[in-house]
Amino acid sequence: MSGVLEACTATARREGATRINEIRVRVGELSEVMEDALRFAFEALSPGTLAEGGHLVVENVAATSRCVECRVEFSHGRFDVACPQCGNVFCEAVSGRELEIESIDIDLPGDREEGTS
């Protein structure tokens, strides 16, 4: 989370922001990340930064893969990943491993102090 806050405050500063209202992150279902742990870390680390008092929005991303043979894209869980069309188990991961910062919502110096978006 300290990496998230660093990246977000750096972007916010570059934009001349006075405050970060919201940080949106994308977390894949197959990653080893707990939403609760992210929220806890955000609350522990955001005071004293531009994101103090802001919101953390966590978007969960479903796992999908593409069959290398018939190119079909399909969603799946952790078990029994195979192409639903031909049964092939050689598949490229398309989504589900994301751990990324999507966007931030910021106030600029002209904005009224209205709290959140």
């Binding site: 977000c8 992150v25 751990l99 990324e100 999507e102 966007s103 931030i104 919502d105």
Partner: peptide, 13 residues
């Protein structure tokens, strides 16, 4: 104002 960041959380790693 919404600003796109699009960075991996583990970008440095």
């Amino acid at each position: 104002m919404r600003v796109d960041v699009s960075a991996p959380i583990l970008a440095r790693n």
